[in-house]
Computed example of a mutant assay.
Amino acid sequence: MSKLVKTMITSLVVLLVIAIASLVVVLNVAGENEKGDAQTIDDIVNYSYESPEITTDLADGAFVRIQFQIVTDGKETLKEVEKRDFQLKNIIIKELATKTEEDFKSGLSELEQVVKSSLNELVEEGEITEVYTINKILQ
């Protein structure tokens, strides 16, 4: 083989090794960032707001007493949610007024999602990451 062919093959092998090494580094760094985005249980507890119990009537005349745990993404968002307590109650009461007893038997995921999206529209800084139903009594 000529000297030129040997040099070209060596250069291609070196470039290939560098490309593979770069790919491995990029994938590992991206994987670490995704792991860091998840909230720890301590963060969830520290940045969550427990709503007051709300008792109201439903569209079919039944009554419900319900309470939520609202998880935020940080301390500033938590403070804002605490200040917007009256708006939270308003959102919940308006949404519950359209529900029936059967809606509560089939699950609360839709209600939690509506509360989450409505609150996210209100907060100016940060976001609501999750809404959990922590107490529900249907009469």
Rank of each mutant, 00 (worst) to 15 (best):
N135L: 07
I9Q: 09
Y132F: 14
V131R: 01
L119P: 01
N46T: 14
V71R: 02
E112G: 02
V81I: 13
S117Y: 11
G107Q: 04
Q67I: 03
G126I: 04
P52N: 15
G126K: 00
G31P: 08
D103G: 00
S118E: 07
A19F: 12
V25F: 13
T7P: 09
M8I: 15
V114Y: 09
V131P: 00
F63S: 12
L88G: 01
K75C: 07
R84S: 15
G36W: 15
E110Y: 11
M8D: 15
E53F: 10
V64D: 01
S118G: 02
Y132Q: 10
L78Y: 05
E82L: 10
Y47P: 05
F68P: 00
E50G: 12
E101M: 07
I93S: 03
Q39W: 10
L96R: 02
I134Y: 02
S118D: 07
E76A: 13
R84Q: 15
R65G: 04
I92K: 04
S51H: 08
N90D: 12
L119Y: 02
D37Y: 15
K116F: 02
F63E: 12
A97H: 11
F104W: 03
V123G: 01
T40G: 06
L96H: 02
L58V: 00
E50N: 14
F63L: 10
L138S: 00
L23F: 14
S22R: 09
N120R: 01
L27V: 15
E101K: 10
D42K: 13
L58W: 01
K83I: 15
E125S: 11
A30E: 14
E32I: 09
V123K: 00
V71A: 08
T77P: 03
D103M: 03
N33G: 10
F63C: 05
I92L: 07
E125K: 11
V17N: 04
L111Q: 01
Q139T: 07
I70H: 01
L108V: 10
K136I: 08
L96T: 04
K94Y: 11
I92Y: 05
E101N: 08
S22E: 12
Q87D: 14
N135W: 10
K89L: 06
I128A: 01
E101Y: 09
T100Y: 00
T10Q: 09
P52Q: 14
E112L: 02
V45E: 13
E53P: 09
T129A: 05
I9K: 09
D42C: 10
M1S: 11
I44F: 08
E76Q: 12
D42Q: 14
Q113F: 13
I44Y: 06
I134W: 05
L78K: 07
S48V: 08
I41Q: 15
N120H: 03
V24I: 14
K3N: 15
D60Y: 01
E130I: 05
I54W: 09
F63T: 13
K89P: 03
G126N: 02
T72L: 00
L15H: 06
E82R: 14
V64I: 11
Q87H: 14
L88S: 02
I137C: 00
L122F: 05
V114S: 06
G126A: 02
E125T: 13
G126F: 06
V123T: 03
E76Y: 09
K83R: 13
L4G: 08
T133G: 01
D85Y: 12
K75E: 15
V81T: 05
V45P: 03
A62I: 04
L138M: 02
V13D: 05
V115Q: 00
M1Q: 08
K99W: 08
T98G: 05
